[in-house]
């Protein structure tokens, strides 16, 4: 069974344990840092590609204020002319931050949306990433002729069943993104 405690061996064992554990963590971190950065970059890249038209060149990140928060956007250009913007937009959903990548064209249409990260309830709010009835309506959503809020609030967005708060957050994120780049197109 365990050794008898005195100040010296308690301090020694605790320090040694922490030292070894810290060393292990340092090694694992060093090994995984590159793959983690790569994975995150791929997720971001895939999200940008998903919300911009095919065959466009994507610019470097440009800082912008979205909904009053610091964020960034990417310009998709074709033959030198900007054809769409991908805007990173964060709002708070039902379970925490909901971060979207929103693709917008200069004529005020939503090209597509993609979820970067979320903490919504699995099976309910989390459907905002997968439910085709919800995600498909964003393709070509015309902000000129339709109102960007859920139907319950008098808008034109179909909410996810039993997940109005998530749907509202999603809609707000798109709206913030639209407001942020509205001025750029002109």
């Amino acid at each position: 069974m365990a050794a008898k405690s005195n100040l010296t061996n308690m301090a020694l064992v605790l320090s040694a344990t922490c030292l070894i554990c810290a060393a292990i963590l340092g090694c694992v971190y060093a090994v995984t840092a590159a793959p983690i950065a790569e994975t995150n970059a791929n997720i971001q890249k895939a999200a940008i590609a998903a919300v911009l038209p095919e065959g466009v060149e994507v610019s470097e990140a440009v800082p912008i204020k979205v909904g009053g928060e610091d964020s960034e956007y990417y310009v998709g250009t074709k033959d030198g002319a900007p054809v769409a913007y991908a805007v990173k937009s964060t709002t708070s959903g039902f379970g925490g931050a909901l971060t979207l990548m929103v693709g917008l064209t200069p004529d005020g249409k939503v090209y597509n949306t993609s979820v970067l990260s979320h903490t919504e309830t699995p099976g309910l709010g989390a459907k905002c990433t997968s439910d085709p009835a919800f995600t498909a309506q964003w393709k070509g959503f015309d902000t000129g002729s339709k109102i960007l809020s859920v139907k319950k609030d008098g808008g034109d967005v179909d909410a996810i069943t039993a997940s109005t708060i998530t749907s509202r957050a999603y809609t707000l994120a798109v709206k913030n993104a639209y407001e942020a780049v509205k001025g750029l197109a002109k």
């Binding site: 050794a3 405690s5 005195n6 064992v13 605790l14 554990c21 995984t32 983690i36 994975t39």
Partner: peptide
């Protein structure tokens, strides 16, 4: 066997936390 009785819980927690963090980093990657 080498852990003094009075600090065995902190030592165990540090050990467990280390493995969890290792797992977290591996899964993230």
């Amino acid at each position: 066997k080498v852990t003094p009785d009075k600090v065995h819980i902190p030592v165990y927690i540090v050990v467990i936390a280390t493995f969890v963090t290792v797992l977290q980093l591996l899964m993230q990657a």
